[in-house]
């Protein structure tokens, strides 16, 4: 079960990014940097959501395409995807998203447990750690989907790929 932060906890900072018109957030502490779309070198025989690797100042970093991962289709023409480099459990990985928008302070009380989504969406509920309304919610009240990176990146599919290495 995703942990739900209780009201007594202090504010946390999240990086917000856009993906097919929806807003997502990840803890800023996991983010190492943000790269403009770099040249991705394709790795043969990889699933579509693992499009390849990039050169990050001499290190080779694999890319996870979040649109593909969540079944949100291909990015629109003329879009300028960016790569958010995150470090999770000692592994460095780039996540390709449509655009990065904002860094937000979120009160713990603003975070709600995700509702039961069932099998409606491609994105399983297990990757969502919570839902929040953006503090600028007065005008519009856009919803922010908080991702559980540890779960997302240690997901069974990815693990199966890792296992193939041994």
């Amino acid at each position: 079960m995703p942990t739900l932060q209780s009201g007594s906890q202090p504010a946390s900072q999240v990086l917000c990014f856009a993906l097919a018109g929806e807003s997502y957030g990840i803890p800023i502490l996991k983010v190492r940097e943000i790269q403009a779309e770099a040249a991705i070198t394709r790795i043969p025989k990889s699933p579509p959501y693992m499009p390849g690797v990039i050169n990050l100042r001499g290190a080779i970093v694999p890319i996870l395409d979040l649109r593909q991962r969540f079944g949100l289709g291909t990015p629109p023409e003329g879009g300028r995807p960016v790569i958010v480099i995150v470090e999770v459990q000692g592994r460095t990985l780039g996540m390709r998203v449509d655009a990065v928008s904002d860094v937000l302070d979120l009160e713990a009380s603003a975070i709600k447990a995700p509702p039961e989504l069932g099998a409606q969406g491609q994105l399983g509920r297990e990757f969502i750690s919570g839902l929040a309304t953006q503090s600028s919610a007065q005008e519009g009240g856009a919803m922010l989907i908080l991702l559980d990176l540890d779960r997302l990146l240690s997901d069974g599919d990815l693990l199966a790929l890792e296992a193939a290495a041994t």
């Binding site: 040249a39 070198t41 990889s46 690797v53 080779i60």
Partner: peptide, 25 residues
């Protein structure tokens, strides 16, 4: 090494970075 970052890919032994900064397998 590619495997430190990635699964092992049949037919590919590793990667390098070329003069133009791109990764080549």
């Amino acid at each position: 090494s590619l495997e430190a970052h990635y699964r092992r890919v049949e037919g590919i032994s590793g990667a390098t970075i070329l003069g133009d900064g791109r990764v080549a397998l």
